[in-house]
């Protein structure tokens, strides 16, 4: 497996029940992603979109991605460079959408132990989360095998492309 499944970044910490309206606000629905992404999560953290860096890791409580099926929610996070999301639990549609964009998600029961700005290294295949700031390591379930081919391919589109190129 490639090293791209090892993700290094700073933690951005959010609470419970962060919904997709706050990630992709309806007011910017008709705008292109470069505009919408600048408003991602602004209702809960106005500094996030401007300051998140490639590979940074979103930490959250329960039911991350609750609400609307809008795919712009995970797309905005991917656009901003988020490397992975670790949460106590995820909403079903958000979970499926994120995997379909190749954005790795791990269920992380101890998410509340992580503080904003701590440096993390995450192996999404193995489900190993190392907190470099506290020198503590956590073991969680890795991404299920049946979904890994999707994440490995970079999401549903590259996966479909492979499929249709092979069949030609």
């Amino acid at each position: 497996m490639s090293d791209s499944k090892i993700i290094h970044g700073s933690a951005w910490v959010f609470g419970d029940e962060i919904n997709t309206d706050t990630m992709a606000p309806g007011a910017y629905f008709k705008e292109p992603m470069e505009v919408m992404a600048q408003h991602c999560l602004e209702a809960v953290d106005p500094d996030f979109a401007a300051n998140v860096k490639a590979g940074d890791i979103v930490i959250a409580g329960n039911n991350f991605g609750v609400g609307s099926a809008r795919e712009q929610a995970p797309m905005a996070l991917v656009y901003l460079g988020v490397g992975a999301i670790l949460a106590e639990s995820f909403s079903r549609i958000f979970y499926r959408n994120a995997i379909n964009f190749g954005l790795p998600l791990l269920i992380f029961p101890q998410a509340k132990e992580i503080k904003a700005g701590q440096l993390l290294e995450v192996n999404v295949l193995e489900g190993v989360i190392a907190n470099a700031t506290t020198a503590k390591t956590y073991k969680v379930e890795g991404i299920p095998e049946h979904l890994m081919h999707m994440v490995d391919a970079g999401g549903l589109m590259p996966w479909l492309k492979e499929k249709y190129e092979q069949s030609e």
């Binding site: 099926a69 499926r96 959408n97 379909n100 999401g155 549903l156 589109m157």
Partner: peptide
């Protein structure tokens, strides 16, 4: 309900 990316897969 499913996201548009997933509905793309369904439609194809």
């Amino acid at each position: 309900g499913f996201g548009a990316i997933e509905m793309t897969g369904v439609v194809v």
